[in-house]
Simulated assay, not measured.
Amino acid sequence: MDIRQLRYFLEIVEQGSLTAASRTLNVAQPALSLHLRNMEERLDTPLLVRKANGVEPTEAGEILRSRARSILNEMERTEDEIRNLDKSPGGAVRLGLSATISEILTLPLIDALMERYPRITLNIADAMSGFVTEWLEEGRVDLAVLYNTSAGGATNADVLVEEELVLIQPPDKPIAKDVSLRCLSEAPVILPSKGHGLRDLIESAARSRKIEVNVAMEIDSYRNTKHLVAKGFGNSVLPLHAVINEVSEGSLAYANFARSELRRGAILKRSGTPSRAQQAVEETIQEVVSDLVQSGNWAGATLSTSLT
C-alpha cells in the first residue's frame, strides 16, 4: 500500500460511498474501485461492505481507517517539521475542547496564539468530554482539553486544574449556601446520558454514599441543561464557571456541595508525538489556563501544582 491508496480509502470511508469520494477527490470511480480491490487483494480480506445506501468498513476496514489516519497525520507533521526547521512553529493544529471549557478558553487562547505564533492555524471543535475523547482516539484532533474522571484515564496527559462542581437551581427556589449530595435524590436532576464523564462522576460519588440520583432527564448539552433548569424542569450539576454569568444575571442560582464532595480535573491530552506547532499550542494553553485561574476568570478552579 502507498500513501495515495490510504488517502483514497480514508475518503471513501468518511464519505460513506465511492461516488461521493470520487467527487471530493476528483478521481474517477472505476479508478477508486481498482485501488480498493488492489488493497483488499494485498491484505487478503474485505475492507468494505457494500450496502444499498453506500459502504461501511468491515472490522479489518475499521483497523485500517484508524491506522491510516494516524499514518497520514504523522506524514503531514513530518513534512511540516522539515520544511519549517528554521522558522517559528507553523501549520494546522486540531484542538478538541470540552464544551464548558471551550467557552472560557477559546477566545484568550486564540488571542495568545495570534500574538505569539501567527503561523499556527488552530482548528477548534467542542463537545462533551466523552465525544472529545473519541476524537482524540480516532486521530480527528491532535490535542484535547477535557475532564478526567477516572483514575486510569490520564495517560499521555497533564493535569491543568481541579475544579469544584456545584448544584444549580432556578433562581426563584430557596437554596442553601451548602448542600449535601443527598439533595440529588430529593428533587429531579437533569444530567448527561450514561457513559459521559460528568454523569459517571456524580453517580459514583452518590453510590459510595448509598444515594440514588433522581434523574429526570438526560441531556447531552450543557447549554440546554442550563435553559431547562432556569425554566424549572429540574436541578443539575455543573462547574461554577459554566454558570457564573447566569448567576450574575439572576437566571440561575447555585450552591456548593458541603466539604467539596464533587470535584474533577481538567487535563491536557495529546495524540502521538507532538509537532513543534502542537508543542507551542500546549505551552500556550498551560500559560493561558494559569492566567485564567489566577485572575479569577476560571471560577471555582485551582491550579495543578505543575502549573503553579
Rank of each mutant, 00 (worst) to 15 (best):
residue 256 N to K: 03
residue 233 F to Y: 15
residue 242 A to G: 09
residue 235 N to D: 13
residue 247 V to Y: 08
residue 238 L to T: 05
residue 274 P to L: 14
residue 270 R to S: 15
residue 253 A to N: 12
residue 275 S to W: 09
residue 249 E to S: 07
residue 268 L to E: 12
residue 273 T to V: 13
residue 250 G to C: 05
residue 234 G to F: 08
residue 261 E to D: 15
residue 245 N to T: 07
residue 248 S to V: 00
residue 265 G to H: 12
residue 252 L to E: 02
residue 266 A to M: 05
residue 233 F to D: 13
residue 239 P to W: 09
residue 254 Y to G: 05
residue 241 H to K: 07
residue 264 R to K: 09
residue 274 P to W: 09
residue 254 Y to T: 06
residue 267 I to C: 00
residue 263 R to Y: 10
residue 258 A to G: 14
residue 235 N to H: 11
residue 243 V to E: 08
residue 274 P to F: 12
residue 272 G to M: 07
residue 237 V to F: 06
residue 239 P to K: 06
residue 239 P to Y: 05
residue 272 G to A: 07
residue 259 R to P: 06
residue 239 P to C: 04
residue 236 S to Q: 08
residue 247 V to I: 01
residue 269 K to V: 04
residue 233 F to M: 07
residue 251 S to E: 05
residue 248 S to M: 01
residue 248 S to T: 02
residue 276 R to K: 12
residue 246 E to D: 12
residue 267 I to E: 00
residue 264 R to I: 11
residue 250 G to N: 03
residue 254 Y to K: 02
residue 266 A to F: 12
residue 235 N to I: 00
residue 270 R to L: 10
residue 272 G to V: 06
residue 243 V to S: 05
residue 244 I to S: 15
residue 273 T to R: 15
residue 242 A to H: 08
residue 238 L to N: 01
residue 261 E to V: 04
residue 268 L to Q: 11
residue 270 R to G: 14
residue 235 N to L: 12
residue 236 S to A: 11
residue 273 T to H: 12
residue 258 A to K: 15
residue 258 A to M: 14
residue 262 L to A: 03
residue 261 E to C: 09
residue 236 S to I: 03
residue 255 A to F: 04
residue 243 V to R: 03
residue 259 R to S: 15
residue 240 L to G: 11
residue 267 I to A: 01
residue 237 V to N: 09
residue 247 V to E: 07
residue 254 Y to E: 07
residue 248 S to H: 09
residue 249 E to V: 00
residue 235 N to G: 02
residue 249 E to D: 09
residue 244 I to M: 12
residue 260 S to L: 12
residue 260 S to N: 15
residue 255 A to R: 04
residue 237 V to L: 10
residue 237 V to D: 08
residue 242 A to L: 03
residue 269 K to A: 06
residue 261 E to K: 08
residue 252 L to Q: 02
residue 252 L to P: 01
residue 261 E to T: 08
residue 234 G to T: 06
residue 262 L to R: 01
residue 273 T to S: 14
residue 255 A to D: 08
residue 237 V to Q: 05
residue 242 A to I: 06
residue 250 G to R: 02
residue 245 N to E: 15
residue 247 V to A: 04
residue 249 E to W: 08
residue 263 R to P: 00
